[in-house]
Design a protein around this nucleic acid. Structure first.
Lengths: 214, 214
DNA sequence: ATGCCACCAATTGTATACAGAAACCTCCAG
DNA sequence: CTGGAGGTTTCTGTATACAATTGGTGGCAT
């Protein structure tokens, strides 16, 4: 693996998992020494982070971890609506019903046994649905836009305080999306996605947690 | 201006305007000498092109200008539908009616006097509409996704053989979009955008030109 | 006391030198 | 004549040295 890739992955993970907080300065020399690479590959990594929108370049002072606020969350969900609803629609046209029927069943099962311990496995299952939709959409342009979007979503996930109740509801909503795609019904798939996004956003806005942990 | 920015702009323009054809290899040393910069900033420029999807990294052989085909056009328009329809919808909620009413009138005027000579001024007007919608949407995430999209659209524009008739029709379609936004009617704005995209895609697919010019 | 200018320190931006890896060509063997 | 292996060559990937720009700080003048 290239050193620049290693540096990029490390920095992105640190930012997404809030080890590098918004506003933190990313000095080239400092980060290069911390990650054990030279300034050249680290510079490339920083450029990619800026392109992703995870950092912004502060002229003369280096790169800074970009800010997150509820206003940003609204903006992010507007993009999410545009991309995910259309993706669900397309997937409902092209998907293999068996794959999504199976996913739907697994979501229903996850919804029945939702506790705070199953949180990680639930997110993994949601990731599987994402990948299955990507595969059904089969559109590299949409895929790239979604990949960029999901990085930001993973970062603001920490803003939401997930309780078992919300996880269970979310699982059922995911199950509905998968079921609609399996049924090859684009309108229902779009509606289920829109409903899920609405509830998800409402939950974040109503249960925005403080950031004093970690 | 930084040397890396200069190299990026130069290469992007060369690719968008088909001076660098799909499949062309972009050797670091060769391009660095051609553009009069060192390998380090050129490398950064190449990384940005790869991130944009205008080039793909060929392991061991450097970067290659990415391919364009009718299949890619379909994929690109699927993303365009997702982003532009939602953008039109949002703009119809927030826009200043006066701005878009004026744009609509200018599009109608452009549609009446459409010749092959007014082609460039028409594209400039379309660009103004894009920027006005961006300003109304006021969403950096969507804006970035649209910016990336428009680079690809500018490249495939050369695939379409624009005749005065299509330019006139397109102007009227743009006028409808602007008018719907001015009227603050999201559904009509979305419908007008969808119609425009459909016609635009149909035109490209039916009139795909050969690429033996320039 | 406050505002402005100049200097200084630190950080980014660029260039070049070096190392490692991959592709191509050549030569040999079957 | 064809296939494979080894070497050569050219490329990318990395490190480091140097230059230029910028932000901060201190002093001076008003």
């Amino acid at each position: 693996m290239r050193a620049s890739d290693k540096a990029y992955e490390a920095l992105r993970t640190d930012i997404v998992e809030w080890r590098l907080r918004p506003g933190a300065m990313l000095g080239e020399v400092e980060q290069a020494e911390r990650l054990g690479v030279s300034r050249t590959p680290l510079r490339e990594a920083l450029a990619r982070l800026v392109a992703d929108g995870l950092a912004i370049q502060e002229r003369g002072r280096g790169a800074m971890v970009s800010d997150v606020s509820l206003q940003h969350v609204d903006n992010l969900f507007a993009l999410r609506r545009a991309l995910e609803i259309e993706s669900a629609r397309i997937a409902a046209h092209t998907a293999d019903p068996a794959v999504f029927a199976a996913l739907s069943a697994r979501f229903l099962e996850a919804g029945r046994s939702a506790t705070i311990e199953t949180r990680e496995s639930f997110f993994q299952l949601a990731g599987e649905l994402d990948r299955s939709i990507d595969a059904a959409v089969a559109n590299p342009y949409i895929e790239q836009a979604l990949r960029s979007l999901r990085v930001h979503l993973a970062r603001i996930r920490r803003l939401a305080q997930d309780d078992p109740e919300r996880l269970a509801t979310s699982a059922i909503e995911h199950a509905s999306i998968a079921a609609a795609i399996a049924a090859r019904n684009p309108d229902v798939a779009a509606a289920a996605t829109q409903l899920h996004l609405h509830h998800s956003l409402e939950h974040i806005k109503n249960h925005a947690g403080s950031r004093e942990d970690t």
